[in-house]
């Protein structure tokens, strides 16, 4: 109920979520093939596969057809921030990702620590700062699965607010489908 109050355009987004159904079928197939003789589980999964997980704060619902609040710190070649423009691999990924849910990214420029602190306070949805999976912020914010490895072995990730698992799953799926396996980007 509360969810709909937060996201009045919920219904329209569900119409655009028909790709979700395909994904859920995939989930189920994986589940069913992954387990030996657990029909109860299959039913359980069938009952609730779609729509889970949900965000603790409804970030994805808010972003669908709305605004995705992105923090971006200068960290070439991953992120380049100048007075007027934001460019680099990660902003490109986020723009494409936002487009899949009809969201418009708004960019907040800043230092990595400042942006991550804002992310922890849930003032942002996602932070692109050329982060790696050994970031000391792990635990205070949610890091995605690594999507690229740089030449010095750093496994690169994006950061999301902790507990926004629907958005996290969406971002990780996008990264897996579109970015995994692409050639490594130059050293940091």
């Amino acid at each position: 109920m509360r969810r709909q109050a937060v996201a009045p355009d919920h219904r329209t987004t569900h119409a655009s979520a028909d790709s979700c159904d395909g994904r859920c079928t995939g989930q189920l197939v994986a589940l069913v093939t992954g387990m030996h003789r657990s029909p109860i589980l299959a039913l359980l999964a069938l009952a609730s596969a779609c729509g889970l997980p949900r965000d603790t704060d409804g970030s994805l619902d808010r972003a669908r057809g709305g605004v995705l609040r992105v923090g971006v710190a200068d960290h070439p070649p991953w992120d380049s921030v100048t007075a007027g423009t934001v460019s680099g691999l990660e902003p490109r990924i986020i723009e494409a990702l936002a487009a899949t849910i009809g969201a418009t990214p708004t960019w907040r420029r800043g230092a990595e620590s400042e942006l991550l602190a804002a992310l922890e306070r849930r003032e942002l949805d996602i932070v692109a700062a050329g982060l790696t999976d050994d970031s000391p912020w792990n635990g205070r914010v949610a890091l995605t699965k690594p999507y690229r490895t740089d030449q010095s072995g750093g496994a690169h990730v994006l950061a999301l607010a902790a507990g926004e698992n629907a958005l996290l799953v969406l971002v990780e799926r996008y990264l897996h489908d579109h970015e995994a396996g692409k050639p490594v980007v130059g050293a940091r």
Partner: peptide
């Protein structure tokens, strides 16, 4: 108020929510 991030997990090439696993 720590919120556990639970993302995806790759099972037989499918990206499923890790919670299911």
């Amino acid at each position: 108020g720590e919120r556990p991030p639970v993302g995806t997990m790759s099972v037989f090439g499918h990206m499923i929510w890790a919670g299911w696993a």
